[in-house]
Design a protein around this nucleic acid. Structure first.
Ligand SMILES: [Mn+2]
Ligand SMILES: [Mn+2]
Ligand SMILES: [Mn+2]
Ligand SMILES: [Mn+2]
Lengths: 148, 148
DNA sequence: ATGACAAGTTAGCCACGGCTAATATAATGA
DNA sequence: TCATTATATTAGCCGTGGCTAACTTGTCAT
């Protein structure tokens, strides 16, 4: 059975289009951890004046060694500045990204709550959804959240 | 600077709650590939009577060896049945999962379209969002999609 | 029936992000 | 001060999911 145009009634999406979607998802997942980290680091700095690995670990729900490894990658990528055994800070690039992520996060949460979701679940679902929301979709979310 | 109750105006969510959210996201990501594969396999079987690795690869946007490796895992997990050099089929468990994923996928897409998104982008965003939607949220999506 | 091409598999590489155990440094308080 | 505790890092393990290259098997047309 070779792959030709199907004789079905509802046209299935072409293979390449599907592939594009999955590529986009994988791309989102590649950026996800960096986004959540810088966002969290920004919040910790705002609250405490610094971001300590131990606090990051507690909030990310992972162990300190895991945090260390990720932070090294973020440093390598220029999002984070660090000195051994010291707190973590954001580079300008990291701070910019954090700001964008924070905004997006809040829009998604407000949208879900507006839709009727309890804030707890909204926060939980948003943590995943936020990374898969295109600019267009985010605009619609924002409008809906503010709207009525 | 130790971590105590902050003197901020807006109460930040406790660390454990945040950790829970991230745990949920990681859990979703662990199931994601299996869900997308069985969903796709179900569709291919519906269209062509069988699901061939080469067609899976084209639609997932990956190479055949990658598909082979993932299929082996799915077989190990009892979602898929296969014989060497033959097409892939779903176990009852796999078929059940596929059905649920298909439904969820369609709800998310219809929701996004109803919100005002073009079908292209809706399909793309849905591919990621679907895995981060709780039962509650899915209900709200369904209602909104049908509603008005 | 068989040879050529398509499809599938295997082997082996890599980066990532979890983890534990062990070690090194910093911070605290008696 | 300095001993104890808290925090951070390193080393090393594992499973996953990408990839390419090489090989095996299946399919199809002549
Ligand atoms: Mn997130
Ligand atoms: Mn998906
Ligand atoms: Mn899907
Ligand atoms: Mn995701």
């Amino acid at each position: 059975m070779t792959e030709t145009t199907p004789n079905e009634d509802s046209e299935p999406r072409p293979a390449e289009m599907r592939a594009e979607s999955f590529h986009a998802v994988r791309e989102a997942h590649r950026n996800e951890l960096a986004e959540d980290y810088v966002e969290l680091i920004a919040e910790l700095i705002a609250q405490f004046g610094e971001a300590r690995p131990v606090d990051i670990a507690a909030r990310m729900g992972v162990t300190p060694p895991t945090v260390a490894k990720v932070l090294n990658r973020l440093a390598r990528e220029g999002l984070v500045a660090r000195a051994k055994y010291r707190s973590v800070f954001l580079t300008p690039e990291g701070a910019t990204l954090a700001e964008a992520c924070l905004r997006r996060h809040e829009i998604v949460v407000r949208f879900l709550v507006r839709l009727g979701l309890d804030p707890e679940t909204a926060e939980k679902d948003a943590e995943g959804i936020e990374h898969h929301v295109s600019e267009r979709t985010l605009d619609l979310f924002r409008t809906f959240a503010d709207g009525d």
